[in-house]
């Protein structure tokens, strides 16, 4: 049985866990290739104009997989991953929007995960999915345990400084990675949703560009959760979106502790949460002796030349300040 996992949105947060779980209950996992012009076009054609870029990209991956004869598409409804917060409203409605917008879809695996409710815990969701795929309960439970363990391995690799792509390769291709060291005189925090920061296509390979410019990059996933939690508390009010709270906590930590020379905040045009948290980050940077921060807004028309110039200018500026 083939299950397709679109390479977009929460893929970057949870792919290893999902893959290990699904394989553990006997499915074959297929993913779409990295985002490309074709995938983006598939997405813009099939989704609503006013939707944010990451959702359009997700639609592109979904359409791609639907055309690859998978038996199921894996699009869970992730409502809440902690008791006191939600995810973005778009995740709350994602399976419905996919189902009501796209034609000729294979059946969806759209179990709800909502830790605010006992009947929607991750384990319950796992059991529901396992049942949908016809696996016995004992097997589901052991696959679930293994998947959780894998999730922490994944997180730990990212804490050590690997990007999701690298971490996934290490986990599943058993390939070792050498971290490049040396010759990096400045450090930049690249902060934003993982599906923005790490997707090379819409960011025009921002991380690669920075590396070429001799910059050491720190992302939110490389920062310990305790530090993120601690610094997120400086917000005027507890933020009720989990992933965004992580973003703010990470940026605040880097700013307050002067851990980097500057911050690049990657946001998508038409992103609801980003529109507010970027304001908070900018305000916090101003209040901390004008801590250097640059905002890059991604949309489907982001131009290579313009971005390159802006990034170079920012890096030069940071070098001069040193």
């Amino acid at each position: 049985m083939k299950v397709g996992i679109p390479r977009g949105l929460l893929f970057y947060h949870y792919y290893p866990m999902w893959k290990v779980f699904l394989e553990g209950i006997g499915a074959e996992v297929i993913t779409s290739p990295p985002t490309s012009k074709e995938i983006l076009n598939l997405g813009t054609k099939s989704s609503h104009d006013d939707v944010c870029l990451p959702v359009k990209i997700f639609f592109g991956h979904t359409v791609y997989l639907a055309g690859r004869k998978v038996d199921f598409l894996f699009i869970p409804r992730v409502v809440a991953v902690e008791k006191e917060a939600y995810t973005c409203p778009k995740f709350l409605g994602l399976p419905d929007v996919v189902r009501n917008t796209l034609e000729n879809l294979p059946p969806l695996i759209d179990a709800t995960v909502n830790v605010k409710r006992k009947d929607k815990s991750p384990l319950k969701a796992a059991l529901e999915i396992g049942k949908q795929l016809g696996a016995p309960v004992s097997r589901i439970k052991s696959a679930y345990r293994e998947a959780c363990e894998n999730h922490w391995n994944y997180r730990n690799l990212m804490l050590k400084g690997f990007t999701p792509d690298e971490a996934i390769d290490i986990l599943f291709k058993e390939r070792g990675w050498e971290k490049k060291e040396g010759g990096r005189d400045i450090k930049i925090g690249v902060i934003g949703h993982p599906y923005n920061v790490y997707d090379r296509f819409p960011t025009l390979d921002l991380l690669g560009k920075l590396e070429e410019l001799g910059v050491e990059v720190v992302t939110g996933e490389m920062i310990r959760q305790e530090d993120i939690e601690h610094h997120a508390q400086f917000l005027p009010k507890r933020l009720f979106w989990s992933y965004e709270r992580d973003i703010v906590g990470a940026a605040f930590y880097l700013i307050h502790k002067r851990k980097v020379d500057g911050i690049i905040n990657v946001v998508s045009f038409e992103c609801g949460p980003d529109s507010l948290i970027t304001e908070l980050l900018q305000s916090e940077a101003r209040r901390n002796d004008n801590f250097p921060m640059m905002v890059i807004t991604l949309d489907e028309h982001t131009g290579e030349a313009g971005l390159q110039t802006r990034v170079e200018a920012f890096v030069d500026m940071l070098r001069r300040r040193k």
Partner: peptide, 22 residues
């Protein structure tokens, strides 16, 4: 009015306060 999500409205006040302070 405030709110506890998931839509932006619940965080309006906090952001507006910050903007006015700034």
């Amino acid at each position: 009015a405030g709110g506890v999500g998931p839509c932006r409205f619940g965080y309006y006040g906090a952001v507006q306060k910050r903007i006015l302070e700034d």
